Computed example of a mutant assay.
Amino acid sequence: MDNSVLINYFSDGEWHSGVQLAEMLGVSRAAIWKRIQKLEAIGLKIEREQSKGYRLKYSFDPIDEALIKVDGIDIRLNAITGSTNTDAQNAVAEKKTQWPDNFSAALAEQQTVGRGRRGRNWISPYGANLYMSCAAALPVGAASLETLSLEVGISVAQVLEDKGVTDVKVKWPNDVYGDGKKLAGILIEVDGDLSSQCNVVIGIGINFTNSSLHQEDIGQPFTAVDQYTDVRREEVATALIRRIYERLNQIVLGKTSGLLPEWERYDFLTGKAVTVFLGALEIEGVAEGLDGRGNIQIRLGDGTLRAFAGGEVSVRAK
């Protein structure tokens, strides 16, 4: 039995008895019970009540691939995958073509080994949120992508704002917040040389269903799109895939971004007291915006202004 078939029966968030599920799927009640255990083992939060049966703690609309409207771009959708970053990278490698034909996007209902910055896990409950990645092999060096993380963060903020999310900010270098709480995260991986060619994959995770997430899993205040607006995941995915493709094409053509001048509007950290984590070292200061290369500037206690690059450090507001 395909896990996704049973999971989609639970997508309404309603109670389903073991007898009902067994009849629908043509299996025994014992088989349903074992399958429920397997779903819980991959992270689904399923409630049980003897008189009612089983239900998922949240409802969701399965992704409809036909609603992701980006002509001419290879888009792959998996029910359950390890990582959409890996899926998108594999799609590019399979094609063995040049830009722009190698640009690929991958989405999933659930990631089993989703990852964030600095090796952190990205919590990925099934069907509840947006897990997507875009990848390409580019005829430019990695140095051309120096500010891409910031540009993608601004793009995510603008798309969510356009769809009705309020008070959207970007926490340098690549987290998106709503009302001061974690709403989305971005992971960009680049390999290749600095000047002539590189491979890039842009992973984006956006919280859509607040009830699917739990404080003990995330470890910080969080929010989700459904706390602000009723928008389908496909709408947001479509807008982001288009924006990412267009920005990568501008980079290939040597054009500068019109996004960075927007940074001040979305900057979550400027003016806040922060702690910079540089390996085992903790540095205290006040965030004072970005330098010309997109590095964060921190005013230290002795008055010194010091810049830090995104790949070096993690920053936490107090």
Rank of each mutant, 00 (worst) to 15 (best):
25 L>A: 13
7 I>Y: 13
55 R>K: 15
309 A>M: 14
227 Q>C: 12
288 E>H: 11
270 T>L: 03
110 Q>E: 07
229 T>Q: 12
36 I>G: 04
187 L>M: 06
281 L>D: 15
317 A>P: 02
145 L>S: 06
177 Y>F: 15
220 Q>G: 00
125 P>N: 04
195 S>N: 06
288 E>M: 03
117 R>W: 01
73 I>S: 04
142 A>I: 00
207 N>W: 07
104 S>A: 15
224 A>E: 12
112 T>N: 12
311 G>V: 05
71 D>T: 05
116 G>Q: 11
286 V>I: 11
145 L>R: 03
118 R>E: 06
93 A>V: 07
16 H>Y: 06
4 S>A: 15
235 E>A: 15
266 Y>C: 04
10 F>M: 04
86 T>K: 10
96 K>R: 14
1 M>R: 06
233 R>T: 02
47 E>Y: 10
193 D>P: 12
317 A>V: 04
126 Y>R: 05
59 S>K: 08
49 E>V: 02
247 R>T: 04
258 G>I: 06
203 G>H: 12
53 G>E: 10
36 I>M: 15
115 R>C: 03
86 T>Y: 07
218 I>Q: 09
219 G>D: 04
11 S>I: 02
270 T>M: 08
194 L>D: 13
262 E>Q: 15
30 A>C: 03
198 C>G: 09
288 E>T: 03
210 N>H: 15
51 S>T: 14
17 S>G: 13
230 D>R: 08
191 D>N: 12
26 G>W: 02
22 A>M: 11
138 L>C: 08
79 A>K: 08
130 L>C: 11
308 F>G: 01
183 L>V: 01
250 Q>G: 07
28 S>F: 09
64 D>R: 03
283 I>C: 12
45 K>A: 15
235 E>C: 10
213 L>A: 05
158 Q>Y: 05
141 G>T: 00
284 E>P: 08
42 I>L: 12
34 K>I: 02
59 S>N: 09
75 I>E: 11
45 K>H: 15
130 L>G: 12
17 S>I: 00
47 E>V: 09
125 P>Y: 09
75 I>G: 10
77 L>N: 04
46 I>G: 14
101 D>V: 04
12 D>V: 03
107 L>K: 07
262 E>A: 11
273 A>F: 03
137 A>S: 14
262 E>M: 14
103 F>E: 01
93 A>L: 13
145 L>Y: 06
